[in-house]
Write a protein that binds this DNA or RNA. Structure first.
Lengths: 116, 116
DNA sequence: ATTTGACTTAGAGCGCACTCGAAGGGTGAA
DNA sequence: TTCACCCTTCGAGTGCGCTCTAAGTCAAAT
């Protein structure tokens, strides 16, 4: 599929897709006879996963590291799992923090209600 | 209290405190006889609240708007409450999103466990 | 044959939220 | 009094994650 279709389906812009490829997040996207990118379904699945990592706050540099390990093959599975477990802890902490802060917001909003 | 003490207690750097003052987030911090900043307890409370807004992802521009309304006094209470209610919704959505993404991470990690 | 429009690359630019540097002033200890 | 060290303002610099531009290629439509 074309870069525009891939952009549509991944929710990323064509610019961002090229950028991700340039920095090594996506490896070896196919090219058609005109030299244009031709995305496969597997690329889309990988992009979806990358997007999860991004929206959960993983820095691009870490994602690059993960992508690099993935390219190296099966023997890096443990290290990749460890990365994800560490990241999962950070996400859990973030959820906990946001949940706490939400209470502060609730209290503040209640105090405004009291005033009106 | 001095800017260093305020930095210590707020968890922000002295640089950031000056920056926040410059852009109008903190208004009229007192000065001592040498022209040095002299923070009051009320400044610290306000900073703590600002920090909650920041860590929950409110953009600086919105925080400035909120600070400006606060300076205008009691008649802006409704608008401030509305801002906070809107922000609270965004925080709730973010928590929901992170919670969903956490499941994806769990699944991925499980699949790695299956391989080892 | 020419125009349109999407694609390619490499590199520059942008917005956000700081973060730092330069130049100078005040205070307190040796 | 000299040194050390903190403070002041203001403007410039930084890091991140894109986002866009320029210059050129290619294919299809007119």
């Amino acid at each position: 599929m074309t870069i525009q279709e891939a952009a549509q389906r991944s929710g990323l812009s064509a610019h961002t897709l090229r950028y991700y490829e340039r920095i090594g997040l996506i490896h070896s996207v196919g090219r058609n006879s005109s030299g244009h990118r031709d995305y496969a379904e597997s690329d889309l699945q990988w992009l979806d996963f990358l997007t999860k990592l991004r929206t959960t706050g993983m820095p691009i540099a870490d994602m690059c590291r993960y992508a690099e390990l993935r390219r190296k093959g099966e023997e890096t599975a443990d290290e990749r799992r460890e990365m994800l477990e560490l990241h999962r802890e950070r996400v859990r902490s973030r959820i906990a923090e946001l949940t706490q802060d939400l209470k502060v917001l609730d209290t503040k909003i209640d105090s405004y209600r009291g005033l009106s």
